[in-house]
């Protein structure tokens, strides 16, 4: 058992559970690995792997129609796939909480990640999604809690941006 705040990867799932979320749609990313594993291991969580991120917007919106709180996990590259579909969130004011792991902004090795990574927050903002950034481990829980509050009480679509510096360097040597 790690102390709260020392292992943000471990803490995120608890925040989502405390927010009443019982469905998690996701496209895998290394930064979300623990949350995805926890969701799949939890008999009270519906874990839905998606082939592309915008699927998750339909799924989380449909879940809300049926009275279930949901969240979507993705990498920054997936934000670009979501743009048009976010019209649904905007038009219907569906609750939309996404956790986005960043690429292309800090100690990046693959330059092809840079264009979308560096446009991620602006793209979300353009579509009316408020961004909550976490660049230090201590930021993750309060920012995710604040975003969940904004989504489910404040009626505001939100993204938690998990910075690349927080996640750390990706190894390219093995």
């Amino acid at each position: 058992m790690t102390e709260p705040g020392t292992d943000w990867r471990h803490d995120i799932y608890g925040v989502l559970k405390r927010a009443g979320i019982s469905l998690i749609a996701y496209v895998p990313d290394a930064g979300h690995a623990e949350t995805i594993q926890a969701a799949n291991d939890d008999p009270d969580m519906i874990a839905v792997p998606c082939t592309t991120e915008e699927e998750g917007i339909g799924i989380t919106s449909g879940a809300h129609l049926g009275g279930t709180r949901a969240a979507l996990l993705m990498q920054s590259s997936g934000v670009g796939n979501c743009i048009n579909t976010l019209a649904m969130v905007s038009m219907c004011r569906f609750p939309f909480l996404t956790l986005v792991t960043m690429r292309g902004e800090w100690a990046e090795f693959n330059p092809w990640q840079n264009p979308m990574g560096q446009a991620t927050e602006a793209a979300l903002s353009l579509m009316g999604v408020q961004c909550f950034r976490a660049d230090r481990p201590a930021d993750v829980v309060p920012q995710t809690e604040a975003a969940a509050d904004m989504v489910f009480n404040g009626d505001q679509a939100c993204a938690v941006i998990l910075g690349q510096r927080l996640i750390g360097r990706k190894s390219w040597t093995k």
């Binding site: 469905l23 749609a25 519906i46 839905v48 915008e54 699927e55 998750g56 917007i57 339909g58 799924i59 989380t60 919106s61 449909g62 879940a63 809300h64 129609l65 049926g66 009275g67 279930t68 949901a70 048009n84 579909t85 019209a87 649904m88 038009m91």
Partner: peptide
């Protein structure tokens, strides 16, 4: 009835989220 007016490609996904949320219906 929930009618989509945009988000092309999302009808089945919206139905999926709904079906998972309401397995009784």
């Amino acid at each position: 009835n929930f009618y989509l007016w945009a988000a092309m490609g999302s009808a089945a996904m919206t139905g999926l989220g709904l079906a998972l949320a309401r397995p009784d219906r």
